[in-house]
Amino acid sequence: MLKINNLNAKIDKKIILNNFSLNINPGEVHAIMGPNGSGKSTLSNILSGKKGYDVTGEILYENKNLFELETEERAHKGIFLAFQYPLEIPGVNTNIFLKTSLNAIRRANGEKELDAIEFLNLVKEKAKNLKFEEEKLNRQLNVGFSGGEKKKNEILQMSILNPKLSILDETDSGLDIDALRIVADGVNSLRKKNNSFLIITHYQRLLDYIKPDFVHVLINGKIIKSGGPELALELEKKGYENFN
């Protein structure tokens, strides 16, 4: 599904990703763990098409060159990024935003757009599963939401859009234990044969709830070790500094 080969990324001549390679197959859950500044967020930004990076190397998504796709086209083709810091958008109603987003993706894929009632039924069901207060959906997008609510809103969007490749950028940071469990349940319920996940995190904690197939350790823009879930536990014990 996703093949990253020798990806290098720079901002203002500062090297952030250094010969980074990763291969994700359909249905797999990969976790990338790394300390602050190791390039985790840059990776998720580049995958979803944020501008401002000098990039070399190759990213293939479903065997196509990802760099040829604009940000919104990547979303149309099933890439979803749950933001580390979801943005507050004043004046934009959450429901309207969700509907605009869902219908833009459906339209791009030649599917019928949902009308107001179909949409509300869908969003109600998904919100309920995530214990997301329905009343918040009528508020301005993320404005006045707590950190946890913003993260839940990301997972809500993910569950509505039902992407093929979900990238979770430190979704666990800022969540209390209950919220963490709800978010993890949300992710687990989306795990299917064809849906893949890339989970970016500092801590092993989230991986107690979402069991990854592979764990990669990212330090200084490079994966220095890959393994199974046990790698996360080892990492937690030793810390990043002593890990080599």
Binding site: E70, I89, S101, A104, Q157
Partner: peptide
Amino acid sequence: DSIFYLMSRGINYEQAKELLINGFLLD
């Protein structure tokens, strides 16, 4: 960054811009 956020949800640049502008004018 707001435009990028909206675009990452499948909304094209023009539409994202319009959403932000309308949101700005709403109050």
